[in-house]
């Protein structure tokens, strides 16, 4: 009963906030609706017993990705007239993507109604009593170790690539050297002088 209520609550909020993400006029509101959608999707994950994925969804998407989205969107100077002309420009590609997604969802629904995937016949069955975080770890670090490490390498390369592409060494900038700042002592930087009256100080 409570599970059913929770499911319909989360599902309804995901759909409504997904729709509002697209339709709201203010981009910041859009991002907020998107965050609400992520959050409720995490709720759905908890309901199907994938609490690790749910937490990861919140930490990664809500905690990091959406913060950066919001960061960028907040600093944009939004021109609504420009936004409306752009809608016409991107309508075709948007429509194509939307159709592809709709077809995929339909295929998934038909496949599901044909019969569920038999989970017992998986290549690496796991103990149902095991918490799914332990089960995931077990699989990732034994059976899929090389794939896991390969994924790690791909991400590392992507990260270094991003840094290499965007990093510009500019000549003539006066950057700080923390070590030098910390090592500086008062006696190196100051001088105690007693100027005679009317003479001033030579700098």
């Amino acid at each position: 009963m409570i599970q059913a209520i929770a499911f319909y609550l989360f599902a309804a909020v995901v759909i409504v906030s997904g729709a509002l993400t697209i339709s709201s006029r203010n981009p910041v509101h859009s991002v907020m609706w998107l965050i609400l959608a992520f959050f409720n999707a995490a709720g759905l994950m908890v309901l199907v017993g994938a609490e690790f994925i749910a937490m990861l969804l919140v930490i990664v998407y809500v905690g990091a990705v959406a913060v950066l989205f919001l960061f960028v969107v907040m600093m944009m100077d939004i021109d609504f007239a420009q936004l409306r002309t752009d809608v016409a420009r991107y309508a075709t590609i948007g429509l194509a993507l939307g159709t592809a997604l709709a077809v995929e969802v339909m295929i998934a629904a038909f496949a599901w109604s044909e019969g569920r995937i038999d989970l017992a016949r998986r290549a690496a069955p796991i103990d149902p009593a095991m918490p799914n975080i332990a089960a995931l770890g077990q699989l990732l670090y034994t059976r899929y170790l090389f794939l896991f490490e390969a994924a790690g390498f791909v991400l590392l390369v992507a990260m270094i690539g991003a840094i290499v592409l965007t990093h510009r060494e500019r000549a003539g900038t006066r950057s700080q050297h923390v070590g030098r700042q910390v090592a500086r002592r008062p006696q190196d930087a100051t001088r105690n002088v007693k100027p005679t009256v009317g003479q001033g100080v030579e700098l």
Partner: peptide, 17 residues
């Protein structure tokens, strides 16, 4: 819950909003 620490990280990452 068995993901207690992750829950804390998740919730504290919400605080920034």
């Amino acid at each position: 819950i068995n993901v207690g620490l992750l829950y804390i990280l998740a919730a504290s990452s919400l605080g920034v909003y």
